Simulated assay, not measured.
Amino acid sequence: MSSTFQHSSELWRDYPALVAGVVRVDGITADVSVSVDSFYARASERLASSSESELPEIRAWRRTFSSMGLKPTQYRCASEALLRRFKKESALPSIHPLIDVCNAISLAYAIPVAVFDLAHVVGSLEVRRAVGSELYLTFGGTVESPETGEVIFADADGQAHARRWTNRQSARSAIQPSSSRVLIVAEALHSSADKDVAELVASVVSALGAAWSVAPRSAVLSAAAPSFDL
C-alpha cells in the first residue's frame, strides 16, 4: 500500500479556507550553498510597512489558533515566530541549507513551511486531531502526549511530527546532515491563499532545482483533492 500525505476530512470541513502546498524531493544533501537574499528582501519590505501581526497571512492563523482554544500570543504559527526573530536580527541562523532556504521562503510569504525527513516518518502522514495516545519528541529529548483534539501531524505509528498544527515540529523527523528524502508542506488560510501558496510552492521547487539539481514533485491540495502520494 502506498503512503500518502493528507489533511483529515474534519479539518477541511472546519477550515474550508485552508490551502496546502506540498513538495516531495529526493537527493537533498547538506553540502550546497543556497541563496536567501531575495526572500529576505521581500520580508524586510513587508515588515517596513506593517508589523508581522498585521499581515493577512498571520492574522488568519491567529484566528485559527483562537478557534482551537489557543492564545495566539502564547502559541504562534511558525512563520510568525520566524518573522519576529527576523525583525529583531535582520537574519536567521544557518541550520541546514534546506532549512535555511525554506525558512527564508516562509519569511517572504509569511506562510508556515514545515520540512520533514521521510526516513523517520512511518507510512502515511495525516494532519488531524489527536486521539490522545500519540507521542511527540521534543528537541530537548523528552516525550509528550498531545492533548485529545489538538491538531497534529500524525504518522501510521502514532508519532506526532508537529503539535498545535503549525506551531512546533518534532525532533523525530527534523532535517539532519544525513537527510535525503524530504517532504515540505506549506499551509495558509487567508483570502489570497490559493495564489500565494501556488507561488510559494513554485519558489520552493525553483530553489531546490537551483541548489541540488533535483526535480521535485509538487501539488496544491484542496478538499476535493486532499491526498498526495509520498
Rank of each mutant, 00 (worst) to 15 (best):
S66H: 10
V25M: 06
R217Y: 04
L208E: 03
E10R: 13
A171R: 00
S133L: 14
S106H: 06
E147K: 13
L230A: 04
S106G: 10
C102T: 15
R62K: 12
L107F: 02
S191D: 14
C77Q: 05
Q6Y: 14
L230M: 15
E89Y: 14
A162E: 00
P177K: 03
L135E: 01
L230R: 12
A104P: 05
I105C: 04
V115N: 03
F39I: 00
E147I: 08
G123I: 05
T138E: 04
V101C: 09
G140I: 06
D155M: 02
S35K: 14
S90R: 15
A224L: 11
S90W: 14
S67A: 14
A188E: 02
T4L: 09
S49Q: 10
A223D: 11
A48F: 10
E80H: 12
G27M: 05
P112V: 00
E54W: 09
I95R: 14
R13D: 12
S124M: 08
I175L: 06
S49V: 14
S213C: 05
V121C: 09
S3V: 09
G132D: 08
V122E: 07
E147M: 12
C77K: 09
K71Y: 02
L70S: 03
C77I: 09
I175A: 02
Y40N: 10
A174G: 10
R129T: 04
A104E: 03
R168Q: 10
I175G: 04
